[in-house]
C-alpha cells in the first residue's frame, strides 16, 4: 500500500498509457454494439491480427531495435497503416463472412454470440497453428514455432524521460501512446458527430427503421463500423508493440476481455465511455498490481466488470451510440 501512495503519480501515468490502448480496442466493441446490439467477441482477434501485421512487416523490412528517429517515425506510421488495413480488413471480412449470413436469416442473438466466439477461436488457431505449419518456413521469425508464447516486435522508440515532476516521470512511450490514442479517438469522435456518414451511423444506432426511411443504407453503415472499429484496433496494435514489444497468437484474449470490460465500464455503445472506461481500468489495474503483485492485475479487471454489471449495468456514462451525442 505504501509503495502505491509514495509513487501514486508514476502509477497513474503508467495506468493512463496502458488504459489508452484498452480504450482504442474498446471502441470496436462499442461501435458494433451501438449499431447491432452484438458483442463482437472476435474483435479481440482483430487486434491480434494487427499486431501480427506489424510483426510481419517489420520482419520483412528487417527493422532493428531502437532505430534513429528519422527511421522510427516513418516505420511507426507504416505500422499504423499496415495494422489499420489488416485489422480493418479482417473485421470487415468477419462481418461479411460470419455475421451477414446470420442477419439475412434473422438469427437470434445467441447464435451471433456463439459465432463470434467461434470466429475468435478460428483466428487464434490460424495464427497459432495453421500459418506456422503452412508458411512457417517462409517467415521463421514470425511463424517458426506453433503457438509461440512471445514473439518480439522490435522496439521503435526508447524510453527516455520527457518530463519529471517530483518522482513521477513521463517518458517518450507514455507520450507517444497517449497522444496517438487521443488523436485517433478525437478523429473518430469528429467523424461520428460531424460528418454525414457519422450521422448515418448514429441514426441506425438510434432507430434502424427510421434511418432506412431517411435513405440510410444500413448494410453500408454496418460495414463502416466494423472497418472503423478494426482501424482503431489496428492503431491499438501498433501502440501495444511500441509499449510492450511483443505479441502472440493468444494475445487477443486478455487484451480483448479488458477492452470489453472498459467498454462496459464506460457504458457500451458510448464512444466517450470507452475512453473513460479504458483509462479507469488501466489505472486501477496498475494500482492493484502495486498493492498486491502484478500477477493479480488481471483479476482486478474482471472484479471491476462484475461490480459494474451488478450496480450499474449501463456503465458510467450510459449506453447508446446515438443518444447523448455519442
Amino acid at each position: 500500500m505504501n509503495t502505491l501512495i509514495d509513487h501514486i503519480g508514476q502509477y497513474t501515468v503508467d495506468g493512463v498509457s496502458k488504459g489508452a490502448i484498452y480504450a482504442l480496442v474498446a471502441l470496436g466493441y462499442t461501435l458494433v454494439y451501438g449499431v447491432l446490439r452484438l458483442i463482437n467477441f472476435a474483435h479481440s482477434e482483430v487486434f491480434m491480427v494487427g499486431t501480427f501485421a506489424i510483426l510481419v512487416t517489420y520482419t520483412v523490412l528487417d527493422v532493428q531495435q531502437y532505430p534513429a528517429l528519422v527511421v522510427a517515425i516513418p516505420t511507426a506510421l507504416l505500422g499504423l497503416v499496415v495494422a489499420g488495413l489488416a485489422s480493418g480488413g479482417i473485421a470487415l471480412a468477419v462481418e461479411r463472412a460470419a455475421y451477414l449470413p446470420l442477419r439475412r436469416k434473422n438469427a437470434p442473438p445467441l447464435i451471433f454470440l456463439i459465432t463470434a466466439i467461434g470466429v475468435s477461436m478460428i483466428l487464434v488457431e490460424v495464427f497459432g497453428l495453421l500459418l506456422p505449419r503452412r508458411i512457417g518456413h517462409l517467415l521463421p521469425e514470425v511463424f517458426g514455432r506453433e503457438r509461440a508464447a512471445s514473439l518480439s516486435v522490435p522496439y521503435l522508440f526508447e524510453r527516455r524521460p520527457v518530463l519529471t515532476i517530483g518522482d513521477t516521470t513521463i517518458d517518450t512511450i507514455h507520450v507517444i501512446v497517449v497522444v496517438a490514442a487521443v488523436v485517433m479517438m478525437i478523429g473518430l469522435d469528429l467523424f461520428i458527430n460531424r460528418t454525414r456518414y457519422g450521422r448515418g451511423v448514429r441514426a441506425v444506432a438510434q432507430d434502424p427503421q427510421t434511418a432506412a426511411l431517411m435513405g440510410v443504407n444500413q448494410d453500408r453503415v454496418i460495414m463502416l463500423i466494423f472497418v472503423l472499429g478494426g482501424v482503431m484496433a489496428g492503431a491499438a496494435a501498433l501502440l501495444w508493440t511500441i509499449r510492450i514489444g511483443n505479441t502472440q497468437s493468444a494475445i487477443g484474449f486478455v487484451v480483448g476481455l479488458k477492452a470489453f470490460t472498459a467498454a462496459v465500464l464506460g457504458g457500451i455503445g458510448n464512444l466517450r465511455g470507452a475512453l473513460l472506461g479504458g483509462i479507469l481500468l488501466g489505472v486501477v489495474e496498475v494500482y492493484a498490481a502495486a498493492i498486491t503483485a502484478s500477477i493479480w492485475e488481471d483479476v482486478f479487471a474482471f472484479v471491476i466488470l462484475v461490480i459494474v454489471l451488478m450496480f450499474r449495468p449501463t456503465g458510467l456514462l450510459g449506453e447508446s451510440l446515438g443518444r447523448a451525442r455519442a
Partner: peptide, 11 residues
C-alpha cells in the same frame, strides 16, 4: 414521416 414521428431524439 412515419407514425409516431420517430424523430432521432439524441440528435
Amino acid at each position: 414521416a412515419p407514425e409516431g414521428r420517430q424523430i432521432f431524439p439524441g440528435m
